[in-house]
C-alpha cells in the first residue's frame, strides 16, 4: 500500500517522473497536482482558470491521458509519468514541438492562457489516435474540455488537423 509515511498520517513522500525527470518529494495530503507543479516545481505553463475541472487551462498529461490537474490530489502522482507543456519539446531547450510550431503558423494562439492545456489535450488526442485518419469532428471532441475565449476555436482545430494530416503523410512516406 502506498500513501502516508506513518500510521499517524501527515506528510507523505511521492515518487514520479515529470518531463522525463525523476522526482521524490514530500507533500501535504491535501495538496493538488496543480499546486505541486506550479508552486513546488515552478513550472507555470499549466494555469488555474476555473479551479473546478471545467476550463482545461490546468491540463497536463498523466500516464498518457489528459487530466485536469486542479482536481487531482497530488498524492496520486505517486508512480506516475507526467508531461507538462514545458516538456513537450522533449528537452530541446528553446525549441518547440512541431504541434506548437503549427499553432503559431495557423494563428491558433491569441492571449495564450488556454494554449498549454490546449496543446496537451491535442497531444493526448493525437497520440491515442495515431495511425488513424482524423476528422475535424473528432478533434472538436478531443479538445472539448478546453475553453478558449479568444480564437473561436476554428484556428486551433485547423492547426491540429494540419498537424494530423502532415503526420499521416509522413507515415505514408515511411510506409
Amino acid at each position: 500500500m502506498s500513501g502516508n509515511n506513518n500510521e499517524q498520517g501527515g506528510r507523505l513522500t511521492i515518487n514520479f517522473r515529470l518531463n522525463e525527470k525523476e522526482y521524490s518529494l514530500e507533500i501535504d495530503p491535501g495538496e493538488r497536482l496543480l499546486d505541486l507543479i506550479r508552486n513546488r516545481l515552478g513550472l507555470i505553463g499549466a494555469k488555474e482558470g476555473c479551479g473546478m475541472g471545467e476550463c482545461g487551462a490546468c491540463t497536463v498529461i498523466m500516464n498518457g491521458q489528459a487530466v485536469n490537474s486542479c482536481i487531482i490530489p497530488a498524492a496520486r502522482a505517486d508512480g506516475a509519468e507526467i508531461l507538462t507543456v514545458e516538456g513537450l519539446s522533449g528537452g530541446m531547450e528553446n525549441d518547440l514541438h512541431p504541434l506548437q510550431k503549427i499553432f503559431l503558423e495557423k494563428g491558433a494562439v491569441q492571449c495564450g492562457y488556454c494554449t498549454p492545456g490546449m496543446l496537451l489535450s491535442a497531444k493526448a488526442f493525437l497520440d491515442k489516435n495515431r495511425g488513424r485518419e482524423i476528422r475535424r469532428e473528432q478533434i472538436k471532441e478531443g479538445i472539448s474540455g478546453n475553453l478558449c475565449r479568444c480564437t473561436g476555436y476554428q484556428k486551433i482545430i485547423e492547426a491540429i488537423y494540419c498537424y494530423a494530416r502532415e503526420a499521416e503523410r509522413a507515415e505514408e512516406r515511411k510506409g
Binding site: 500500500m1 502506498s2 500513501g3 502516508n4 498520517g9 507523505l12 495530503p29 491535501g30
Partner: peptide, 15 residues
C-alpha cells in the same frame, strides 16, 4: 484545503 491522511490501498481487503 487539507485532510490529514491520503491512503492509496491496493486491495479491497485493505480498503
Amino acid at each position: 484545503m487539507t485532510w490529514e491522511n491520503y491512503f492509496m490501498p491496493s486491495t479491497t481487503g485493505e480498503v
